[in-house]
Simulated scan of single mutants.
Amino acid sequence: MSEEATTADLGLLSARLEEVEGYLHLDETRERIARLERESAAPGFWDDADGARAVMEALARDRDDVAAFEAARSLLEDAQAALELGDEMDDDGLREESQALAERLSSSLSELELSSWFTDDLDHGDAIVTVTPGQGGLEAQDWTEMLFRMYLRYCERRGWKVDVNDAPAGDVIGLDRATFTVSGKNAYGMLRADQGVHRLVRISPTDAKKRRQTTFAGVEVLPVLPDDIEVEIDPSDLRIDVYHASGPGGQGVNTTDSAVRITHLPSGIVVTCQNERSQIQNKASAMQILKARLYEQEKARREAELDELRGPKHEISFGNQIRNYVLYPFQLVKDTRTGIETGNVSAVLDDGDLDQFIVGYHRWAVSQQAE
């Protein structure tokens, strides 16, 4: 990369850093940190355990934002110093070091920009993800398992914890569905970008004639509700069934009736969980998912508009997809909303390299709101 291009890059990154500083309101954040630290040191702070945990979570989030910004500023200073010294000494090695630092800075700024875009408290919390087969029969169940594994790899890359709630095997191949809870910073805010219909085009692995097959799966993303959000559920409205756990989500627990299915009779919502080793744990996980879905339903009803958490409800079929994954006759993954695409399909499906799409979606969504 030429000196001029690198200098221009650093100038753009410096401008982005200034914008992020404005977005994050760091002076206010530092004042809030000082206030929360005083609160946490006060006598009797832990008398209200739930309130104390909420304060500590907010304090940790603010500290992380300030630390990340300071680290980004240090990266910019180091990159500028390496470039200046490289120019003085005509040292390509230092120029390359400057470029490497600039790339790290760009990635850090993307994370900081995301934090500034997430204005709903739920965005910063955990997520419940469900992948469901759409059109395509057995192929759709196989596609469901492929997406499930893609998200597991993505969560691993981000350092998020995953608890598989339910992942029963398909009729012949793949999964009948997959529900899992993701715990980590901004998990819900990030993953809601992938809510919608995902379309796969490939040579069918189950077709003896090796014909091209188009398959669909739907991804639903819900927030894990914090303790201070209450969802009233009348126990008489619930039908709770227990059964033998089975399939990938129930290995090791299928010798007892540990799996739980909860049906909310007024709404018709059905939730199953079979991954935990006890019926009590499975019931607790299923209730958490049910509360999230009822919260979503109530929010939609009160606001009398499209469901803000799921987005528009579409049939899981052609024409409604948010992203296409093409394995044949060429290799391409393309987001239909943002136009972002890559030919490295393996990196996406096998390695969970989704940030280009997820971060790209949020940047695009913010730009749409600004217009």
Rank of each mutant, 00 (worst) to 15 (best):
R104K: 15
L349Y: 01
V260G: 15
R95S: 07
E232N: 13
Y188F: 15
K299I: 01
Y188I: 08
L225M: 01
Y243R: 04
G86P: 12
A140M: 09
S183W: 00
S110Y: 03
G51Q: 12
E341W: 09
P312M: 12
M89R: 04
G22K: 13
G134N: 11
L112R: 01
G51V: 02
E39C: 09
D241G: 02
S116I: 11
P205H: 09
R32G: 00
E21K: 15
L17N: 07
R30E: 03
A259V: 06
Y295L: 06
E296S: 14
T7A: 01
T6P: 01
T215G: 07
L75D: 02
D207E: 09
W117C: 03
I316A: 04
D92T: 09
R202M: 13
D207Q: 08
D166Y: 15
P223W: 11
V326E: 08
S40T: 11
R199V: 04
L225K: 05
R16E: 10
D64E: 11
I269L: 12
D121T: 07
P205A: 11
E96L: 01
I358K: 05
N324C: 06
A127V: 05
A8K: 14
E18T: 14
I233S: 06
G343I: 01
L24H: 01
M56W: 00
T206L: 14
E111V: 15
G93E: 12
A49Y: 08
V162H: 02
A102P: 01
S278G: 10
G247C: 09
R293S: 12
E31L: 13
G311N: 08
A169D: 15
G125P: 04
Q274K: 05
D234R: 07
G339M: 12
D355L: 10
R16M: 11
D91V: 09
T29S: 14
A71I: 03
T256L: 13
D50R: 08
C273Y: 08
F118C: 09
T7F: 02
D355F: 09
R158C: 11
A245W: 06
D194S: 14
S236Q: 15
I322L: 11
I173W: 10
H314P: 02
G352A: 04
Q297P: 06
I358G: 07
E4D: 12
Q331D: 03
F318K: 08
V348F: 14
E145P: 08
L191S: 13
L354W: 00
D121Q: 09
R95W: 10
A54F: 08
G311K: 00
S115G: 11
V326L: 10
A370P: 06
E103H: 13
G319L: 09
R261G: 03
R32M: 02
L101M: 10
A286R: 10
D257F: 00
G170N: 10
Y23L: 15
E298L: 05
E220A: 12
V66I: 10
D65K: 13
